[in-house]
Design a protein around this nucleic acid. Structure first.
Lengths: 189, 189
DNA sequence: GTCTATAAAGCGATAGAC
DNA sequence: GTCTATCGCTTTATAGAC
């Protein structure tokens, strides 16, 4: 039952990777064509709105992945302290210890921020809200949880920037380990 | 004594701003031309290597600014605890509470990272080393200082990303305030 | 030192055959 | 659904007048 014809869902992953590696401007249609194995004609068949529609589809898919794999579990997982630890592990794997860029973070620093403002804000708002909820359920008071959640999400983004600039995944690992330790509930809290 | 002819040094600032606002790819020569008020002919007169030479010149100028205004004072300032606080204030002003992107951080996330790898690494290595030195002089032991310095520099970058994504300078201010508090020497340390 | 004109290449996007 | 050919435009970079 080999599928020879592509579905739209099949090409979003490779397109996302092209945007991560080259940025919005740098990911030219010919690069995207190479990454997906599809000609421009096919790409415009799936995304009539062109490059901008591709980027929006990618952002939607990225948030859906985080929602299913990370955000939802933070809010509803039974042992929420364990879920927080799991979040850091999942994030380290997803971003490949800083070798892989966060698409949303990269767009936030780029020229295209205003174009995708709604999606960028939604992603980070949601992440912070889910993490805050997990912290509260783990015993934090609300104010402390809000601060720690914001700090951790910013910290992950900073870890990616720094690890890429120094070209050293160990930097990323250390940053994540520090955040993880800081968000662990301690007897004194 | 009005100067009508431009010097190379006069145009690096506007070029830096163009790269910050639009990224390396997005900062086209016609945008740079508009930002500097100079035609392409003049730009190539100052930077025969074209856009790449402009970016390298900008990175050198940025590091020189940080060296003079921040790094050197961290290492040699008399009251090093006060210098650390001053660093956060200077950084908040320089990055305009996250409204202004860190050029080095943005390059690190972008496609052009490999092209400017040496400059990116130098900037962050230097920042971390200077901050670590200040922390040691303020009473930290070496291991703690290394961790705190790395955490703070990453934290600043993350604060910029997050504040831009959420389009909220208050996010930046809170992140910086938390970092500042964490690096303050306390009696228990 | 500054400009305009221009070259050569690549861009996003479209048309239309299959 | 996929492709090739092509349009119109912008890009970086160069040439040469002033």
């Amino acid at each position: 039952m080999a599928r020879t014809l592509a579905r739209r869902a099949d090409v979003i992953g490779p397109i996302a990777e092209a945007f991560r590696e080259h940025g919005y401007d740098g990911a030219t249609l010919s690069l995207i064509s190479k990454a997906t194995g599809l000609g421009k004609g096919s790409l415009y068949h799936f995304f009539p709105g062109g490059k901008e529609e591709m980027a929006k589809a990618v952002l939607i898919e990225v948030e859906a992945w985080f929602e299913a794999q990370i955000f939802a579990r933070l809010e509803t997982g039974e042992r929420s302290a364990a879920e927080i630890g799991r979040m850091f592990d999942a994030v380290a794997e997803y971003f490949r210890s800083g070798r892989r860029v966060c698409l949303v973070g990269a767009f936030a620093l780029s020229d295209s921020r205003d174009h995708f403002a709604v999606a960028l804000r939604a992603y980070f708002d949601r992440w912070i809200a889910a993490l805050k909820q997990a912290l509260i359920r783990a015993g934090c008071d609300e104010a402390a949880a809000a601060g720690l959640a914001e700090e951790a999400v910013a910290g992950v983004q900073g870890a990616i920037v720094l690890a890429r600039a120094l070209d050293d995944p160990a930097v990323f690992a250390r940053c994540i380990a520090r955040l993880k330790a800081r968000l662990e509930p301690r007897p004194s809290a």
